[in-house]
């Protein structure tokens, strides 16, 4: 019973939403927007659970003085501060909330993003080795694209930038599309398997 009900809900809703996709009638659209509203409500409830988990995890860490517990104080204080500032002083364009967002949060995010350059360099150095014929071909392609896209690539050969672009447009695009077609089928199959109840791993596997 514990599994039958979720499977039945999944099957009914999956089939109903699939049928809805093919019906442009206002009743069908109205139904779709009702479901979307339900989803928003569901998300809001899930957020309460999630925040509860965050508070619980960090409170325990502080109480038990676990390793690096002071960071948990930072997390909880920041979360409470942003919530209080946003609730009581608003989130308009020039509010304190927005200023904190733009002057603290945005630069911190940008810093994390910027680390990508460092990681790319070290990962490329470690991994780009001509271990096999395929790896050598990939290495050569990467080399041509990197040099071709640099401003002075044209001085090495005037045809290099065009060749680099050709690699991006054709072999690279062909490979990407091959993967995308496979992914699309995988996604459709996964959706159908869940709707039809063939896939039950999310319910703990086979009964």
């Amino acid at each position: 019973m514990k599994r039958t009900i979720p499977l039945a809900i999944c099957l009914i809703m999956g089939v109903v939403m699939m049928i809805q996709f093919f019906i442009p009638h206002p009743i069908s659209l109205e139904f779709n927007s009702t479901i979307l509203n339900w989803i928003i409500v569901l998300f809001a409830f899930a957020l309460v659970l999630a925040i509860g988990n965050l508070i619980r995890h960090h409170s325990i860490k502080i109480r038990k003085r676990k390793h690096d517990w002071p960071y948990s104080i930072v997390t909880l204080t920041s979360m409470a501060a942003m919530a209080i500032i946003g609730l009581f002083w608003g989130i308009e364009a020039d509010s304190l909330f927005q200023r904190i967002y733009l002057n603290i949060f945005a630069p911190l995010s940008a810093t994390m993003f910027a680390l990508l350059a460092y990681y790319m360099a070290s990962a490329a150095y470690r991994a780009f080795r001509a271990r096999s014929l395929e790896a050598t071909l990939l290495l050569a392609a990467a080399f041509i694209v990197m040099v071709g896209f640099m401003p002075f690539g044209q001085y090495i050969s005037p045809r290099l930038p065009a060749f680099a672009e050709w690699i991006m447009r054709y072999p690279n695009m062909a490979a990407q599309r091959g993967i995308i077609i496979g992914v699309a089928f995988g996604a459709i199959a996964t959706a159908l398997k869940i709707i039809l109840g063939i896939e039950r791993s999310w319910l703990g596997g086979k009964e």
Partner: peptide, 22 residues
């Protein structure tokens, strides 16, 4: 698709595209 090269370089094993669904 755009993140696959990063995982291939930094991870021991990578499931590419549809392998994820299999």
């Amino acid at each position: 698709v755009l993140q696959l090269p990063f995982f291939v370089t930094a991870c021991d094993y990578t499931l590419i595209g549809e392998e994820l669904y299999a």
